[in-house]
């Protein structure tokens, strides 16, 4: 990751400074995820994974929700095919993130794409989209993604070592930490009536899908919200605030 100097896309800021800014932007999410990391570690041990396997779940699978669900399924003896299909369903929202980041990330060199692709969690997507109006800064994204990765893995290691001594963390209401942080990211992003419509539709659909146990509800809700936002903008002739910035000269639009 040394030879970026010749790159015309290089941001006029020191790499370390950008990375630290990214880490700082991701910090609320990194903190919110600590209890979940601990839970993921201790739950894996409880389910009968050995220490190396438990850490590998966080280090190479690196997917909070999918990890917890898969470990639960391993624990109750569910077959491999079901685990993998469930994983695919839970992870399907990442296809959307990749598509949304395609313009920013696909021109990057291979090792950057592999790195940022691996680190592309809900949280990194949230952090990157928050700063979308600026030019995409790979070091900022790396700082956010990698600091989140480190904290997730350290928290998991703590959970693995503590094992089953961890009390029922999932009953303390720790999921509120995630909700609060996401609220703090979503609300400032509501800059136009169509985004408000998009968020409200997504909210109602997500609650309804969850209430009726509809598989893939998260993606259904998000796509419904996106469609509603798009249609609202169309019928009200709304100009998107980011539109001019999204279409740089030379982009394949």
């Amino acid at each position: 990751m040394q030879d970026q100097q010749a790159d015309p896309e290089q941001v006029p800021q020191s790499k370390l400074k950008s990375a630290l800014k990214g880490a700082a932007a991701a910090m609320p999410l990194s903190i919110a995820v600590i209890p979940w990391g601990i839970l993921a570690g201790s739950y894996a041990i409880e389910a009968g994974l050995d220490m190396l396997q438990s850490q590998a779940m966080s280090a190479i699978v690196f997917a909070g929700a999918a990890q917890l669900v898969a470990v639960g399924m391993i624990k109750s003896g569910v077959g491999l095919t079901s685990i993998l299909l469930t994983t695919l369903l839970i992870t399907s929202r990442h296809f959307l993130y990749g598509m949304a980041m395609r313009q920013q990330m696909s021109p990057l060199p291979l090792r950057w794409r592999l790195t940022l692709g691996f680190l592309l969690t809900d949280e990194l997507f949230a952090v990157c989209s928050e700063t979308k109006q600026h030019k995409f800064d790979r070091w900022f994204a790396f700082g956010g993604g990698f600091s989140f990765y480190l904290i997730w893995n350290i928290a998991s290691a703590v959970g693995i070592v503590a094992g089953q001594q961890i009390p029922n963390l999932d009953e303390l209401g720790l999921d509120f930490a995630i909700a609060a942080t996401f609220i703090a990211l979503v609300v400032p992003a509501i800059k136009t009536p169509s985004i408000l419509v998009s968020v409200l539709v997504s909210l109602v659909m997500a609650v309804v899908c969850e209430l009726f146990h509809i598989p893939g509800g998260l993606l259904i809700a998000a796509l419904s919200g996106m469609t509603a936002g798009m249609l609202t903008a169309k019928f009200t002739n709304e100009a998107h605030p980011n539109k001019t910035l999204l279409t740089r000269p030379g982009d394949d639009l």
Binding site: R93, L96, Y97, M99, A100, Q103, D122, F125, A126, S129, E130, K132, D175, F176, I178, A179, F182, I183, L185, V186, A189, I190, S194, I195, S198, V199, V201, S202, L203, V204, M205, A206, V207, E210, G217, L218, L219, A221, A222, L223, G225, M226, T227, G229, M230, A233, H240, N242, K243, L246, T247, L253
Partner: peptide, 20 residues
């Protein structure tokens, strides 16, 4: 499609937080 995807972040994050 780019415009459609510009709604993805608020919509997905809302879909994650709403049931919580």
């Amino acid at each position: 499609m780019v415009k459609f995807l510009s709604y993805s972040a608020p919509a997905v994050l809302t879909a994650i937080l709403a049931p919580i």
